[in-house]
């Protein structure tokens, strides 16, 4: 019961094999090309609603010059001026017409003396310097989850912003936009602060040095946490992971880390003056990883004690070994 032989057809010669190979290759290439061309050409109808965006915020100034300066003293405004001078002056970073955002830490409605939030003196001086360098506008913002208005007022940051001609932006629910961080594992379809960034050209992070119950320490990198909306407390399950992703999310122009007084115990809220220690240091850097690694030394730690600094360093998000940047050191008696 063998069917009749179909008669002479192609035979498996070498030539025939290459002919078939080429045909198969062409078919694969054609299918792949067609697939790529069709790839989400018409996304599912969204009734005019918007899609998740790329939430990354890159405000780095990539000009040559010192990347870090460490000032010592007690007067925050004077230390800031001296450190910026050692970095080549604020004009290196802020130019005429720039719209500057200051991301402060205003997470708690506690008085400035408790060191849980960014000190208002620093906000006022930074805003003044930006205006003097020609900035068209300066806005100060943070996203405290609990009663934002009282956080800005009781910390003195609101008053400092008003006195120095800076605007204050208090986020509302609509200020956030769902974004997915490319390469991110946690920040996916997550609400990220968006509205106040409209038109902004420079971003400066200003944070105090604090111990942190969960993360070990909260400094300039942890400060970007305030850009997240939603029920962000679930990120506490992977606090190191989220801090590293925040470093991927945000590339600031500058960070200012205030270690005039460091919160050694009971962070990040503190509550008592006894939680603070005079560490008499203020760090200005273009690299938040380096700034935080230096800040860690004020808490009696090194960057190796803080997994997020080690990981951020390994991922090339900054330099955890900050001494290799040869930071400019500005002692109290210098001009």
């Amino acid at each position: 019961m063998i069917p009749p032989d179909p008669g002479p057809g192609p035979v498996a010669t070498r030539r025939e094999f290459f002919r078939r190979g080429l045909r198969a290759g062409a078919a694969i290439a054609a299918t792949g090309g067609l697939g790529a061309w069709l790839w989400n050409r018409h996304p599912p109808g969204d009734f005019g609603r918007t899609q998740a965006s790329d939430p990354r915020k890159d405000f780095a100034v990539r000009a040559a010059g010192p990347r870090m300066a460490i000032a010592t003293g007690r007067d925050r405004a004077a230390m800031l001026r001296r450190a910026l001078a050692a970095m080549g002056g604020i004009e290196r970073f802020i130019g005429r017409g720039d719209r500057v955002m200051l991301k402060v830490n205003a997470a708690f409605a506690t008085p400035a003396i408790l060191g849980a939030t960014t000190h208002p003196d620093l906000v006022a001086e930074l805003a003044r310097l930006c205006r003097a360098a020609g900035a068209a506008s300066v806005i100060v913002t943070d996203n405290p989850i609990n009663s934002p208005e009282s956080c800005f007022e009781l910390t003195g940051i609101g008053a400092a912003a008003r006195a120095s001609g800076a605007g204050l932006f208090v986020p509302r629910q609509g200020s956030f936009r769902a974004g997915t961080l490319p390469g991110g594992r946690l920040i996916r379809d997550w609400p990220v602060l968006d509205e106040p960034f409209a038109g902004v050209t420079k971003l400066i992070g200003v944070a105090p040095v604090k111990g942190h119950q969960r993360a070990g320490a909260s400094m300039t990198m942890k400060n970007w946490y305030g850009l997240l909306g939603g029920r962000r407390n679930q990120f506490h399950q992977d606090i190191d992971g989220i801090i590293v992703e925040l470093a991927m999310l945000v590339k600031p122009t500058l960070v200012v880390l205030d270690g005039t007084d460091s919160m050694m115990t009971n962070g990040p809220t503190g509550g008592s003056l006894a939680d603070l220690k005079a560490t008499n240091t203020l760090i200005v850097a273009t690299d938040p990883v380096a700034a935080d690694a230096c800040g860690a030394t004020l808490l009696g730690k090194t960057f190796r004690d803080l997994p997020y600094l080690v990981r951020a360093g390994e991922m090339g998000l900054g330099t955890a070994d900050f001494e290799s940047l040869h930071p400019a050191r500005v002692p109290a008696q210098a001009s």
């Binding site: 119950q213 407390n233 962070g267 809220t269």
Partner: peptide, 22 residues
């Protein structure tokens, strides 16, 4: 200065962030 506020285990970290674990 304000009304009282209440926080549950689910929302404690909204108020005291990283110290909630303690």
């Amino acid at each position: 200065m304000s009304g009282a506020e209440a926080f549950s285990p689910g929302t404690l970290s909204d108020k005291i962030d990283g110290k909630a674990d303690l």
